[in-house]
């Protein structure tokens, strides 16, 4: 894959953080097309770009031959975002509590906490193909 591929409401990128902006542009453009307000767009973008970051870095180990896909679906006022990588899977319950005093100055480890705060529902699924993260938000 040489670069981002966009088809309908799906974008697929090589696992390179240089494509993060392309994912965000696609995401925010799609949400504006749905008529979502700017504050909610920001909350969704904060969450989705973080999951994409994690998929590129931790899932696909920044291997550009591995793909990362974001699918956006709308059902009435509920939006669903599915991020899929080709990683070996992980256990979200193994993440340290980012609110503990000893973890406050850590540069990583608060992503899942923030995503759970901003989105209505977050599900992590280890599949034979990789990790699938599904986030929903009613707008």
């Amino acid at each position: 894959m040489d670069g981002p591929i966009i088809k309908d409401n799906t974008i697929t990128i090589p696992s390179d953080q240089d494509y993060l902006v392309a994912v965000d542009d696609f995401l925010e453009g799609t949400l504006r097309g749905f008529g979502v307000d700017e504050s909610t767009i920001a909350d969704i973008a904060i969450s989705v770009t973080e999951v994409v970051n994690n998929g590129i870095i931790h899932g696909n180990k920044c291997d550009p031959s591995k793909a990362l896909t974001l699918q956006i679906a709308r059902s009435g006022s509920t939006l669903k975002f599915v991020v899929s990588d080709e990683g070996e899977g992980f256990d979200p319950s193994c993440v340290d509590d980012p609110l503990k005093e000893e973890n406050l100055l850590k540069e990583v480890g608060r992503g899942i906490f923030i995503i759970r705060s901003l989105m209505d529902k977050v599900e992590f699924e280890n599949t034979p193909e990789g990790v699938r993260v599904t986030m929903t938000k009613t707008v």
Binding site: A42, A45, I46, S47, T49, E50, N53, L105, K106, E107, V108, R110, G111, I114, I115
Partner: peptide, 11 residues
Amino acid sequence: WVNSTGLGILI
């Protein structure tokens, strides 16, 4: 806006 990675960059 700033995501979690961005907060890590500020830290």
